[in-house]
Design a protein around this nucleic acid. Sequence first.
RNA 1: GCCGCGAUGGCGGAAUAGGUAGACGCGCGAGACUUAAAAUCUCGUACUAGCAAUAGUGUGUGGGUUCGAUUCCCUCUCGCGGCACCA
Length: 819
Amino acid sequence: MSDYKYDHQAVEEKWLQSWESSGLFCSTDLDLNESDLKNKEYLLYAFAYPSGSGLHVGHVEPKTALDIQARFKRMNGKKVFFPVGWDAFGLPAENYAIKTGIHPKETTKAAINTFRRQVKRLGISYDWSSETATNNPDYYKWTQWIFQQLYKKGLAYQSEGKVNWCPSCQTVLANEQVVSGRCERCDSEVVQKDLKQWYFKITEYKDELIEGLRQVDWPEPTKNQQINWIGRSEGAEVDFSIDLDNKSAQKITIFTTRLDTIFGATFMVISPEKFEQKNLFKFLSQDNQQKVQEYITLAYKKTEEDRKIGEKDKTGVDTGLKIINPFNQEKIPLYVADYVLGGYGTGAIMAVPAHDERDMAFAQKFNLTIKEVVVDGHLINSGEFTGLEVREAVSKMIAAKPDVSRSSVNYKLRDWLISRQRYWGAPIPVVYDPEGKAHLVKEEHLPWLLADDVDFKPTGESPLKSSEEFKARVEKLYGAGWTPEYDTMDTFVDSSWYYMRYCSSRDSLQFADKKRLQDWLPVNLYLIGPEHIVLHLLYSRFFTKFLRDEGYLNLPSGEPFAKMRHQGMILGPDGRKMSKSKGNVINPDEIIKEYGADTLRVYEMFMGPLEADKPWNPRAVAGVSRFLRKIYRLVNLEIAKYKNSSSQLIENRAELVQKLHWVIQKLSLDLPELKYNTAIAALMEFSNLWEKSADDSKLLLKKEELLAFIKIIAPLAPFIAEELYSQSKLLGLKMQSSVHLESWPEYEASLVQKASVVVVVQVNGKVRSQFEWPTSRIDEKESILNEAKSLESMKKWLDGQKIQKEIYIPGKLINLVVS
RNA sequence: GCCGCGAUGGCGGAAUAGGUAGACGCGCGAGACUUAAAAUCUCGUACUAGCAAUAGUGUGUGGGUUCGAUUCCCUCUCGCGGCACCA
């Protein structure tokens, strides 16, 4: 057989240059007309942070997966928008600056350049004309503008309170960024600190953030995680009064999801924060005042980690006060204990040790009464409510005491703390007058530029404080004694609206054009790692809903991402997460150098289902390379035969033609479903069959068939497809300048079917024989059953047996039930 | 503890409106080409017994529904992810 060498390096470089100079796909016309609207396809990959270490094989998978969609959809006549940009603010660049003194501006620029080059080398067909980066003033101008819109609506506010402080990063963290008491970035233990900080009132949208999930096509587990994070729970509030001699009407309100157990409440617990806030010290005896004060001081010192230890060993202190249960008038003791959280519900609970584990643990430690009030779903020892079922008891109890009880709903979701005491982020566009009152930076002063003259060394205060220019700027623009806000915004603010900016990346007058947003949103397919489920997605949905409510966006659902899927993690060859310290990192540049970008792309798509975590297998990469070279050889063999005009089609080619139509159908169905691994397997099956007769001197495929095959590999392996397409121009067919401008080939349903099928014969569910049968006659049940029963190989299974039942699944199998 | 996901050959994985389990790739074995090697190609490859035809077993465990279960239902075990003193 002739030898066709495929020089991946030369071929890929050649087409990269060709695509670059022809501007293929790098600029989408975003102004749609009526007929484009139904055809639009907005494909989005999670905003990437341009890290200094460059592209990782883990980035290659989702980028390729979406690129295949983009190419496939274009070939199917869709108007595709496939933008790219950089989530360029953030800690790593700043930490690097602390170490080296190199300005984050410089390192970020260099990192973006590296990423851009690497992504292009992979053959990702991004629309580079809409490229953007969050650290560009023309981007963060609008991040700041959105902050100001939120502020004007009372949805951005300042509040003093306990915040999560990471002593290593020297900044506060949002609740979402604290992972079991530790900083999600650096794993240091998070401590509580009192600080005045900026918050976004995401809780304003809590119910809609749950409701909206019904309208999107997202993986169910993802929806569940968001719902759990928002943590809606229905229950009741009940007012208990404090038993005081002077009859002053002091009340403590509790929240419970188990109002039905209220007759079992044997004590009450209030959180340290709430006790202080309600200023209940004055009702305590001198002695108790001191004890309670000591306990509260101690509790505040605890870190999250200490509180966790407390799960097993509960602490608390008896206030000496008695509280009256409004349902049975029982007087029960009031404890202060930190197992009740100040920030959830009303900060106080009725403790029912018989029906709550935590209350039980506390009761046992402090020797408190335990009273059972529910058995087998029915109330006991509950006065007039005894005998009722749990469910009806709750509503009847509220109805019986409307003055002291009401139904109530609580959420775990808190407002989003966005202040960061860091440098490399968008400055919060606020200035303070000499009295310390906050004012928005005037709109004409946006973008409110990030000062350059700063000292990066962490001091626990915002690095911007060290900028002379920043202070001078504020005094110059706003007057003597005015000062800037020195904190910057959480980078999640930047990435909460980038998919809108993409539609108008160059617009200097507005954050995005309303018509374009209406035309392009929602995103048709969002591919994003599972690590972004609670943070980024929740914040982005909040922003979209807010901007919709402000009239900047016509999107009734307020849901920016109509369909979302997750990619899995590419693990090292040892099956563990790749990391430098484990020495199991695969460098994509090296794979491209050895095998080419097509091999890297196809291999990663072939590893397994997109959403699964998959270990890297160096040998299997070589297998994919082998497959691509085989394709190259097979196509070239056919082209060579066509050069010889006397060549004739081989007579017996029905099987190959059937397989070709089958593989076109398989890809047509699998590609839009992102089932790339099975699509590639089908291509391999086809080329294996093709190869069997490759040595025949007669033609195996018609010109159009050969071309159809080249077209269907184009989304997966764009370089080799382009090369083969270019070589096929010799065939004299009417062709485009690039295979990537071609349309997707049709398959003929009649040709997908094989001429005959194999019918399996089972006896009592076990396979005993099989026979071939013409596909055209698969509906002839009687003849098929007769054929099965008369098979020589069936004799020993049927002799002397009585057939009780005959089951025929058309074209597949027969099951004979005998006894 | 709660919520969610998963378990199939030596390995990655296919196949679920219930219908031949193991497609495709890797690895392994045998062969062709070659002075030889590489590359490439061909054949074989779930397990057990057998020279073979063939038979039996088999999709984490135990049970159920069914003519028929990897697929549906129940139980348990293990692994992964998220949340976690949220009343």
